[in-house]
């Protein structure tokens, strides 16, 4: 089963990369971009058929390694 998870920076954490991307977009003519926040996307292929169990495993992975909970939030966004 494939689980999708995203990791994003918490709201009050500075994101210099997002800012630079926003500036580049502005330079390309995308004037109406208000803000860009950059995050990470993970596709986790787990050897598990039970959706709940697979999502729980992915959640544990996020908590233990994929996200640093001091500065990041994570969300399981889908499974198939």
């Amino acid at each position: 089963m494939k689980i999708s998870a995203i990791v994003t920076l918490k709201k009050d954490v500075l994101d210099p990369q997002g800012k630079v991307v926003q500036q580049a977009l502005k330079g390309m003519g995308f004037d109406n971009v208000k803000e860009i926040r950059q995050g990470k996307y993970f596709e986790i292929d787990v050897d598990e058929n039970d959706k709940k169990k697979a999502e729980k495993k992915a959640e544990e992975m996020c908590k233990k390694l994929l996200a640093n909970l001091v500065i990041e939030d994570f969300k399981i966004i889908g499974s198939q």
Partner: peptide, 16 residues
């Protein structure tokens, strides 16, 4: 900091 032996985290430098 990643092992949590010390608190906090080191982010990207403010001025990229």
């Amino acid at each position: 900091t990643e092992t949590e032996l010390l608190p906090g985290v080191l982010l990207k430098n403010k001025y990229s």
